[in-house]
Amino acid sequence: MNKKVSEAIAFGIFRVLSFLLVGVLALILLFIIVRGVEAISWDFLTKMPSDGMTSGGILPAIVGTLCLMFGSIVFAFPIGVLSGIYLNEYLKESKLKRFLRLMTNNLAGIPSIVFGLFGMALFVNKLNFGDSILAGSLTLGLMVLPVIIRTTEEALKMVPNSLRVASYALGATRLQTVFRIVLPIGMPNVLTGLILSMGRVSGETAPILFTVAAYFLPKLPTSIFDQTMALPYHLYVLVTSGTNIEASRPMAYGTALVLVIMVLIFNLSANLLRRKFSKKVKLK
């Protein structure tokens, strides 16, 4: 009797806490969605900001964020995946490898502002790229590089060793084994990781603060040496340092919703991809 009661109480409390929590979190989303939907319109998505950012649209910020996302991935994805393959498939366990793993893991967890600091000092100042899409993309790229390496390695680790061995036993070379057996199986997970890091890149503010983001620049970038607006920084500006914070509130809600939708799209596609392939390849 006694233990039944304590169980009921404990689980009851857990249930309430969990629902409370998920309720609060859902409320945040709902709040942004409801307020944001009022602000979003075709014009909002396709016009330049105007009237001290209290009206008009956020087109340059959307385009800027897409440029940065694309730029950073173009740089980080190939190097990251290729390094991941090399580390997992070629490099033997050794002190060097453990050291490398320690360094990459460490880098993967460093606060993004530190990358901002680094990017500004190196790309903007020392290499003289100035505040530019190039500097911003490289900074963001460096930030996700260790994440991509780690995801790649983890994805390839999930490929059972017995398949590699079987492939070698049939006379396949290491490269053939990697490209015909390991990668086809591991790739969906690598791609899932890629999509998630694209989501992360598009939402980061700290690394672009001093490397590319423009406070107000109502034109689309034309080269990689241009500065550009970007969604997360735009939201930050609208909320904390706009010319008229009250009047730009609706713009802020709209921008926040666009950001959330972007993340949502990335998350959903990553999940779909993962589900589709995990059904196809059942590995024991």
């Binding site: 059972p160 061995v165 079987a166 070698y168 036993a169 049939l170 006379g171 199986i185 196809k280 059942k282």
Partner: peptide
């Protein structure tokens, strides 16, 4: 050499 000598393992390991 491995092409000339076939090998079958303890656990079936077909490729997916």
């Amino acid at each position: 050499l491995r092409y000339r000598v076939g090998m079958v393992f303890q656990k079936p390991n077909p490729f997916p």
